[in-house]
Amino acid sequence: MSTAGGSNPEYVTARVRARRSALYGDEEYRKLIRMGPAEIARFMEESDYEDEINALGSRHSGVDLIEYALNRNLAKQFDDLLRWADGRLYDLIARYLRKFDAWNVKTVIRGIYSEADRDAIADDLIRAGEFDEDLLDQLLDAPTIEDVVDRLSGTIFGNDLEDAYEDYEDTGVLVPLENAIDRTYYEHLLEGLVVDEATQQYREFLEAEIDFRNARNALRLAQSGADIDPADYYIDGGSLFTASELATLSQNRDELVTKIRESKYGDDLSAALDELESAESLINFERALDIALLEYTDALGHVFPLSITPIASYILAKEREVDNIRAIARGREAGLPEEQIEQELVIL
């Protein structure tokens, strides 16, 4: 509800645990992989996604229907979390869910840039973050990117976006704006986080997320060989790299891999790193990062049951579920073989 009042982890955790056990498991995924888009939609209608499929069924069909229903359900679930939580817990959850605010702002800016119409942009929003409906509608109604930046001036994104807007005007590409949004999000992730025994783990999880994001960016830069200054993409707050380290490491892929292998994430990622060294593909490595993060948070929830960690673990599991179903639906639509789709899934 708000940051006022006491924290109520008991209530939120009990609800989250029930929701988590309702997520799709191995069995459901095995069934889904053999279905076509229409069957997947029907399967979803018979489970948790009933309301969304019914609401969107008349306007969309096929993979679009699945995709929008997934987004809407994700938004509903995470909005529920924010609605239930009070006090300190709200603050901790909102920190992570601002990721969707960042996503929405980026979507709106990209939409305006590519001159998409309002409804198309609205369908792609995930209304899960801290922004309320009014603000999102205002953003959607904004005719130009400058108006979007103006309307965001009261939010955490305001200052950085205004600075980045000048760059955008000079260069005409969206990169400075998107970079500013990402950076604001990640900077606020750890800012002012009061660390006690229970939130220590949450902090480690957020740091792991930042580390993995940095590793991913560095590997992509190393892979593409593009002449971009890695420091521009460096996100502060992780425990694995410093900005200068990352800059030198992204020139040399082998050293980067060694560095990750020797870090505290080395054990979890060793199989993925082996694969990365032998093959040239980043996809498997990025998938391994996702699995490692999911496994990590899965264990988190059991040590301090009455803290933010079971909730963080649910948020991540729900996101993976949505990604998985989307991958299955898109994969089936494109006619990929079952084994290949299975490889794309992130399942524990």
């Binding site: 109520n8 008991e10 209530y11 939120v12 955790t13 009990a14 609800r15 645990r17 029930a18 929701r19 239930w84 009455l306």
Partner: peptide, 14 residues
Amino acid sequence: RGIGAAAMGAIAED
């Protein structure tokens, strides 16, 4: 207090 809050959460779901 704690148990009641958790119980209400669980009942709300099931």
